[in-house]
Amino acid sequence: MSLTRADVEKVSLLGRLLLTPAELERMTVQLGQVVDYMNLLAELDTEGVQPMAHAIELANVFRDDVVRPSLPREQALANAPQHDRECYLVPAVLGE
């Protein structure tokens, strides 16, 4: 088995998901199957093959350094779950 429950637990913290013990159990099995399937890739010899991160061959796409209007603050904050008149609010950020 390629994936352990501890792996899955660690990944859940990295990906900021809280999984119940039952979810963790199920996820370990399901992800394990998928990861095993992905190991199919290992059988291919890719020596000397350039990785392909984009499906297009574009380069040097830039914009001019021109200031454009920002969003009115009310609009910027409108979708925030918690905010005051000026800022987004989150549980205290302390030495993190």
Partner: peptide, 11 residues
């Protein structure tokens, strides 16, 4: 969505 986030985070 959780599965894919987990999968991608792992990869």
């Amino acid at each position: 969505v959780k599965r894919r986030i987990m999968l991608g985070t792992y990869a």
